[in-house]
Design a protein around this nucleic acid. Sequence first.
RNA 1: GGUCGCUUAGCUCAGCUGGUAGAGCGCUACGUUCACAUCGUAGAUGUCGCAGGUUCGAGUCCUGCAGCGACCACCA
Length: 927
Amino acid sequence: MRTPVSHELAPRLDPGAIEPARYRAWLEGGYFHVPASAVLEEGREPYVIVIPPPNVTAVLHMGHGLNNTVQDVLIRWRRMQGRAALWVPGTDHAGIATQNVVERQLAAEGLHREDLGREAFVERVWSFVNETGGVILDQLKAIGASLDWERTRFTLDPELSRAVREVFVHLYEKDLIYRGEYIINWCPRCLTALSNEEAEGAESVGSLWHFRYPVAPEAQEAAEAAHRASAESDRPGAIGRFEDGRWYVTVSTTRPETMLGDTGVAVHPDDERYGALVGAEVELPLTGRRIPVVADVHVDPSFGSGMVKVTPAHDINDFEIAGRTGLEILDVMNPDATLNEEVPERFRGLDRSEARERVLGALDEAGLLVDREEHTYSVPQCYRCDTVVEPRLSDQWFVRMEPLAQPALAAARDGSISFTPAHWKRVYEHWMENIRDWCISRQLWWGHRIPVWYCSCGEVIVAREDPDRCPQCGSTELEQDPDVLDTWFSSQLWPFSVFGWPEETDDLEAFYPGHAMVTAPEILFFWVARMVMMGYEFHGEAPFSQIYLHGTVRDAHGRKMSKSLGNGIDPLDVVERFGADAMRYTIVSQCAVGTDISLDHEDVEGAFANGRNFANKIWNAGRFALMSLGEEPVRPLEDVEGDLRLEDRWILTRTTRAGRSATRALERFRLHDAAESLYHYFWGDVCDWYLEVVKGRLGPDADPASREAARSTLVTVLDRALRLLHPVVPFVTAELWSKLPWPDGLERPDDLIIAPWPDGADGFEDADAEGRMDDVRAFVVEVRRLRKEYGIPEGQRITVHVTGGPESFTPALENQATALERLARVERVDSVGASGVGGHAVLENGAELFVPLEGVIDIAREVERLQDEIARLDKQLEGTRARLANEKFTSNAPPEVVQKERDKAAQLEEQESKLREKLEGLEAGAS
RNA sequence: GGUCGCUUAGCUCAGCUGGUAGAGCGCUACGUUCACAUCGUAGAUGUCGCAGGUUCGAGUCCUGCAGCGACCACCA
């Protein structure tokens, strides 16, 4: 069935030689594919993760590496637990991002999308996506992602588009989608509306300008009254007098160009300073338009002058003030942020930065620009192109979020959905509690077209199927809304649209709702929160129960890895150089809950050394085991139980415990803990101790019963260890496991990928053996230390006298004679205390060790060596002390240098006193 | 402005429900015993940001302060 081919194993793991073939074998074995029947017919318990669909045009970066490694670890682990573990792959059409890429291509050809027209442009995007899209999915294969490729989905697939349309119409019919004219975030470069989430704040230093608006002639008395009231108030006033005696008010802005759209000035209704002015008018400079002073609660009397100019069409707060006070709404800007016909002629047609200069110039000339201050504030930018967003009045489609948020909020509160790390729960709740309506229409061509048609008779048709005539007037001249939907509108349906909803499919029944959602905190609001809302709206429950938010990948300086910073690491390059296992282990071992991952892009080898070394260690341990086991049959562990020795019982116990702690860690998304504890179990316990101890029992000359027990134990331990390690380092483990001999008569799974997970629940356990072996190990370590301390040559065998310690200690040591010889070159353990020249040590268990040195080392030479050493230290000390005694040095050198010198002196003194103590001991014994 | 988080060995960071400080990398010394030098053995290094408090006992809980960061909101 399988022939051990240990002699073929290279002494170094060559990932390139095994990984692609392994992955192919898994694909061919169909291990990644989970049909609905596995759940519906075979009754297996499902475990479902849907991938956060990367942008269809994306190429793999470390962030994907992290995200997908985590998911794959979870999926592989659950698969081994016997769950019908399904991980659904796919990509997102990424509206703005993809359209931008293609538009840039066009620009390089000197073309604009308008040159092609909508249909041709969309066709062009499709062909771009068909040619280059989905590359990232192939790249995921290189890192070992065990996705069910038969289920690959794309958010623009016909089935998923049907889901989008169903949802739109459903929400519209429930009055949860509406169209209206509101202030939205407008990107003047992408020429589309954005949601609040898509406008990201960026700290920026700008200016705050102060202007004077003349008070209208008939309101001079009111102004004077307000001026008097201001003088009585302890707050500064905004009322002043020009040289000609006319009154003015002072207002401020960070965006002077919008002043042309001012339709009012507002004060707080309770502000004692300005009560007299409410209802009066001021003149808007540059236009001469009269605008009223209104009272509104939004104004903060304690900020600035307590008087605000109101520009309803270009500021969200001002828009709300207008709504409450009835101020006029005057849009003075075009979609591309150019002043329009509503403004005086000399300012028309200017883009916003030019307009700003002109307006400032004109105001200055008129003597109305009085001051400019530096002002740090957060400027909203387009999340796709970083252009400063323009708040703008616009007719758009919105989702009414509050009703949808209710159940999604309750889900977090009652624990229906859990967050890891837990503190994200509060962030999520805060967002839900303060939710605002979602602008979902985008003035793009790439995406799901809004399913709304307009008839010339005024009828608006919102329909699941494209209508061919108006139900009202029968006209066939219908025009579809030109806009498309926000990309996230389709993404939010992903957990169920991938399973064929709104059709009632077997997949939905079998796999929905899913279990874990693994993603980055950045898209908690964009995506995760909205998926939960949609889950409740359309299925009455959350689409997953656990939300695991992992950290961000950063470079050695803590900066986020990004293309623009040039500090990225290409995961494929890492896979090529060190293997997917190395990359996965490195990532997972750093993946502590709530922390970021840092990898040095300037030292990629160093960054992944740990993972590479570990994979190689596993490889070599396996290589050794396979070579030692040979081709003879191995007996099941039960058959040799009576012959198990202390170290066998110990390592079997350790294995059980390793399984238990790994399971516990994984259940709580503590991937770092799982990886690290398995690392120490394997490297520390299995390799450093068990393999070393058992070496002497595997040869042809060893006692047959002991040999068989060792072989059975070794196979058992290796089998379990490889299973436990498999989710993190799937390739090297599967490769070795496939070559591992198997105990006669025991059923062997077809592949490690589906071998049952050894959770340790019913594993071998012998606490007594564990304790005794720990004593033996402590003994070995202490002897090694003594050997080192006294410079006993490597090859020199010694006798150790032991007294005290637990009763079982000395017999245990006797039983480990071969191992002790091998591990510490201890020829004989004598239980009779001895005296004379030698090294002493006391173990934690109370045993005292004595190593006679007469005849072991040359005492005279050792004394000489120690004397030399002391002399050397003395000389060093002399120099340091001289320097410290020198006042010029202590007073002139930098304090830290002096301190360093002092530390050095102290250290040398301590070393020397230790050596002197040792020397005295030797000399006393020798005499 | 609000909320939350972080500050532990030279570097990057673990440390869950309070009980004698840990890992990896790096560093030092020794080592080519046939799994592995991508290795082995041994070793050095920390007033756990600062100041208080609770406790028999605090890196771990509480309060205040400082520095850093994240998210949200945004005051014109």
